[in-house]
């Protein structure tokens, strides 16, 4: 599966039912949904994943599971997103096959290079700006990191971390292919409207 040229990825969080969040994100024009729930049981994840995958298929959007390759394999997700503490991308590639989308979170050129070698399709680069969505002891990477890290991987960059309508244009100009958000959509009063506004900015 090819990645779209410019797109919004919405990552679900603990605030609401992931299926509802996914529906609203897709309504707002997100082209990728990532299911990320660290404390849910395998059964819960599987059931959410099956429903979100169906929603994504209907709208020709991509669905990926964070970390849990087992869930992705069991319900035939479009792909997985892996952090540096998760399984190596080459293992995911071997088990999911050549068609699956595999994303890897990186924050240095060396990690990016590994992701490229391991058969990833894109890299998630962040956090770009200060963020409260995750406990991040490290300082933000800044927009200037996007281009060199993307080049080291030879892959499209999805920028993440503190991205909002006010800074999207600069982030896209700095070389990002996509934007991933958690709070900007999941924490909004109207997630679909928030997603739509982000998508509009991505294309401006």
């Amino acid at each position: 599966m090819n990645l779209p040229r410019r797109f919004l990825c919405v990552i679900t969080d603990e605030r609401a039912c992931p299926v509802e969040l996914a529906t609203m994100a897709l309504d707002g024009g997100a082209r990728m949904v990532q299911l990320r729930r660290k404390t849910a049981s395998g059964r819960e994840l599987y059931e959410w994943a099956v429903r979100i995958q169906e929603l994504c298929r209907q709208r020709e959007a991509m669905f990926i599971v964070n970390d849990r390759l087992d869930i992705a394999l069991a319900m035939h997700a479009d792909g997985v997103h892996l952090g540096q503490q998760d399984l190596p991308a080459k293992i995911a590639r071997a088990l999911l096959g050549p068609e699956a989308i595999i994303g890897v979170s990186v924050s240095t050129p060396a990690e990016a290079e590994n992701a490229g070698r391991d058969g990833a399709n894109y890299i998630g680069v962040g956090h770009i700006f200060p963020t409260f969505s995750k406990d991040k002891p490290s300082p933000p990477l800044g927009m200037a990191s996007i281009n060199p890290i993307g080049k080291a991987a030879g892959l499209p960059v999805i920028a993440i971390g503190g991205i909002e309508t006010g800074n999207i244009r600069e982030v896209m100009k700095a070389g990002a292919s996509g934007i991933a958000v958690i709070s900007a959509v999941c924490g909004a009063d109207h997630p679909a409207a928030a997603a739509r506004e982000l998508v509009n900015k991505i294309w401006q």
Partner: peptide, 19 residues
């Protein structure tokens, strides 16, 4: 079970609330 497959384990033990 993904890690069982990748590491050459013979099996997977599932919790009651597994997929």
């Amino acid at each position: 079970f993904d890690i069982a497959l990748a590491s050459g384990a013979q099996g997977v033990h599932l919790p009651e609330s597994s997929c």
